[in-house]
Design a protein around this nucleic acid. Structure first.
Length: 458
RNA sequence: GCGCCGGUGCCCGAGCGGCCCAAGGGAACGGCCUGCAAAGCCGUACAGUCGCGGGUUCAAAUCCCGCCCGGCGCUCCA
């Protein structure tokens, strides 16, 4: 598989540290508020990477941190008269429900929490202080950026370029030797949670947690490190700098997913077009899967558009896949042991191996859906094609729905559908239509097939 | 301001030197199927300038230059 690597700036083969095994670290959330659509794209991107690699037969270790101590958490705790651990616990649950349950994203195998890693972080910082790449003063401990070889390598910018930005934008902190130097450890401030350290009470800086945790969980020279493009600088640049300064082998490959726009504009709190995942999920029962399809139909490195219209369009796509599933189930097609369609699998693989070409991979799935429907209509053996759709869609995390039953009133609906079938047999079409209207009013869609009617919840 | 990424049909989006008179999804239209529908299949119209203007090349949506527009980053935001 070839992937775009942010550091080298080119698409290059994913070369694994240990053959057959993939170690993946995707930066996780800071838990203090509702997760939004941007979090969904981020989490979904690495969920798809993982699912595809697993589908290819690789043994993936997916790790994602949970940042449970930072300024935002402290501020919220203060504002609500709560405590930081409480805030973090509550919002982590909200995140998990929306992301993992709502969007059918696989839980990372390992989810280290920052507050559980303070000892490791302190030890890491000690290494940096000992080897002269970090210095302590009254306000904390800082990384001496100028001492790091190729500091701006990930963003492809020189130290001078970066200083220009830092000087222009940031309040110059004269306790630092260089405006670019950043905090590894922050000295205690009043009313903030603190941990002991050789440099006094305080709390860890932002970037140190990911370095300490990724290297501990996945080991030196792990394969893939990912996150949103907005993390390239400073977060990932600084993680990388810390690892380099400590003489550790860090990520072999960096990947970053693009941002998303709502109604043509960037999503932000100030523009008031901020959407939480839960809002979207509540809007329509198909939205979780529709969002996944929408995300898959755009390449992960391209800014994508999201608005009510495209969500509706994506729902249409999901319904198309489900309709095939229902039709196949009604025709009694068994996919057990059916041989997959080799052409489709090859096309799918080729697309995915080329820097996660999910839009083309999805196109292959839909083409296979059409071929399966045609075979089903013609009464030909469609098992292989249906199995291919289920398999390939599954590799992308899309489940193919079937009958759509599962409500408390299933028996009642079955009875109405049966009554309609009887009316149709008796050519009493007025009664048949009345019964169908009644079902429609209950949100049930009835589809007549050669093997009898099937129904699902619309 | 500096750096980076984009601008493709009605909408969303692939394609990134010849296989493109440009994939796939959604919407539209016609046909088949149906008692009528729905779903599905088949077909059609949509891109006659692939943001605009130059250039390179036998050949450009695809490469180069300039401009316009949108996005991201420039210290804690996915």
């Amino acid at each position: 598989m070839r992937l775009y690597d942010t550091e080298s700036g080119e698409i290059r083969p994913l070369e694994l540290r240990d053959p057959g095994k993939v170690s993946l670290y995707a930066c996780g959330p800071t838990v203090y508020d509702h997760p939004h659509l941007g979090h969904a794209r981020q989490a979904m991107t690495y969920d798809i990477v993982r699912r595809y690699l697993e589908w290819c037969g690789l043994d993936v270790h997916h790790a994602a941190n949970v940042t449970d101590i930072d300024d935002n958490i402290i501020n919220r705790a203060t504002r609500e008269g709560s405590t930081e651990p409480e805030i973090a616990a509550v919002w982590k649950d909200v995140y998990d429900a929306a992301i993992f349950d709502g969007l059918d994203i696989l839980r990372p195998h390992t989810r280290p929490h920052a507050t559980e890693y303070v000892d490791e972080m302190v030890a890491f910082i000690q290494t940096l202080v000992d080897n002269g790449s970090a210095y302590a003063n009254d306000s904390g401990v800082y990384l001496r950026v100028a001492s790091v070889n190729d500091y701006g390598g990930l963003v492809h910018r020189s130290l001078d370029d970066l200083r220009e930005g830092a000087g222009a934008r940031v309040e110059v902190d004269d306790t630092k030797e260089d405006p670019l130097d950043f905090a590894l450890w922050k000295a205690a401030k009043p009313a903030e949670p603190t941990w002991p350290s050789p440099w006094g009470e305080g709390r860890p800086g932002w970037h140190i947690e990911c370095v300490a945790m990724s290297l501990d969980v996945l080991g030196d020279g792990f394969d893939l490190h990912g996150g949103g493009t907005d993390l390239v600088f400073p977060h990932h640049t600084n993680e990388r700098a810390e690892a380099i300064a400590a003489g550790r082998d860090f990520a072999r490959h960096w990947m970053h997913n693009a941002m998303l726009n709502i109604d043509g504009e960037k999503m932000s709190k100030s523009l008031n077009n901020f959407r939480t995942i839960q809002d979207l999920l509540d809007e329509h029962p198909l939205n979780g899967r529709a969002l996944r399809l929408l995300l898959l139909q755009t390449h992960y490195r391209k800014t994508m558009e999201i608005n009510p219209e495209v969500m509706e369009q994506a729902r249409g796509g999901i319904e198309r896949i489900d309709a095939m599933g229902r039709k196949a189930a009604a025709a009694g097609v068994s996919t057990d042991g059916a041989a997959l369609d080799a052409d489709a699998v090859t096309a799918f693989r080729t697309a995915m191996d080329d820097d996660m070409g999910t839009p083309e991979a999805v196109a292959t799935v839909f083409e296979t859906v059409r071929r399966a429907n045609a075979a089903l209509d013609a009464g030909e053996d469609a098992a292989g094609l249906v199995a291919t759709v289920v398999d390939l869609a599954g590799a992308l995390g899309i489940r193919v729905g079937d009958a759509g039953a599962g409500g408390d009133d299933d028996a009642e609906i079955d009875a109405l559908v049966a009554a309609r079938t009887d009316a149709r047999s008796a050519k009493d079409f007025a009664e048949a239509d009345r019964l169908r209207d009644e079902l429609t009013a209950r949100g049930i869609v009835v589809e007549d097939t050669p093997t009898g009617p099937i129904w699902h919840r619309g």
